[in-house]
């Protein structure tokens, strides 16, 4: 398995993508690697990296039931096993499948004893592969994008993550993962198999509340976890430090709030490249140096 480090945090807008893209830039100065943006509902890593257009696009299909009405006996088994309510059956009528509700789990396929359900496919999103070069740094960005109107993010995150993992293994390069906001199972899938989980938070009670939910997952799975408190200085960070200790977090790291960070964010350049001498860049480089033995492989 190639080294895998993921960046998550619970609350939106704490700086997950900000930290992940800066670390990706620094790692890219040393060696080739993959950065997977698994925030499929609102992917922004390419914007923070100044990428104008996403590269090569491939569909991510999941299973979709195709009903063979000549074989269907209207027994109702498929509708009964469907947990998402995607298969609707009214009295003496053949089943109808609602695409948006279907999560592609195949329970109906296996439950049908009359072979009336055939494996079809539905594209729930896409995966883009984009080469990124910023100065001397070079790496590959993989971006998952949810198809507009779809609601099941978990199977898409799983699809993109598996492809990214496979590619990292084939090329023997490290993989960095940036997750979306939230604390549901889409996030657990994104951080699965990580050698290190970096939970990015902010010094507000909101950041604290959602950090706890993420730490519940990483502690529950016995994963090696660090906490990065971004925008240090805009509020009280003591409770976050205490929470990190309570959950046995291995390392707690503060990255200060800085004007340069906002400017770099808006310009689409990692701050470590935009203002290398700033305090915020210094603290991110410090974080990278600590992480290096884990990610550089």
């Amino acid at each position: 398995m190639p080294p895998l480090v993921s960046f998550t945090g619970g609350k939106g807008g704490t700086g997950k993508s900000f930290i992940a893209t800066n670390i990706a830039y620094l790692l890219g100065l040393e060696r080739r690697h993959l950065l997977a943006d698994l925030d499929v509902e609102a992917p922004n890593d390419h914007i923070l990296l100044g990428v104008k257009e996403l590269g090569e696009k491939e569909p991510v299909p999941i299973f979709f039931p195709r009903i063979d009405y000549s074989k269907c006996t209207l027994c109702g088994a498929c509708a009964k096993v469907c947990d998402t309510g995607a298969i609707i059956m009214s009295k003496n009528r053949p089943p109808i499948v609602m695409p948006r509700l279907c999560s592609g789990c195949k329970a109906c396929l296996y439950a049908c004893v009359y072979d009336a359900i055939k494996p079809g496919a539905r594209i729930i999103g896409f995966m883009h592969t984009t080469p990124v070069t910023i100065g001397e740094s070079a790496f590959t960005l993989i971006t998952g994008v949810l198809h507009q109107g779809e609601e099941h993010t978990a199977p898409l995150v799983h699809g993109v993550k598996s492809r990214a993992l496979r590619r990292a293994r084939e090329d023997s390069v490290p993989l960095l993962v940036d997750t979306g906001a939230g604390t549901g199972n889409s996030i657990s899938i994104a951080i699965q198999y990580s050698d290190l989980v970096v939970a990015v938070t902010e010094p507000t009670p909101l950041g604290l509340h959602d950090l706890r939910a993420i730490l519940e997952i990483t502690r529950g799975l016995g994963m090696r976890t660090w906490v990065v408190l971004n925008r240090a200085g805009i509020g009280d960070s003591d409770p976050h430090r205490r929470l990190a200790r309570e959950y046995g977090v291995e390392h707690y790291h503060e990255v200060p709030y800085a004007k340069e960070a906002v400017e770099a964010y808006v310009k689409g350049v990692p701050v470590v490249a935009y203002a290398p001498n700033s305090r915020v860049a210094e603290k991110i480089r410090e974080l990278y140096d600590l992480m290096r033995p884990i990610i550089a492989g």
Binding site: P59, F64, P99, R100, K118, P119, A121, R122, I124, H147
Partner: peptide, 15 residues
């Protein structure tokens, strides 16, 4: 309304 168009592919494996 902005339409929701599910991207359903035809069976590629059998039947």
């Amino acid at each position: 309304p902005e339409p929701y168009i599910p991207l359903i592919l035809h069976d590629t494996s059998r039947g």
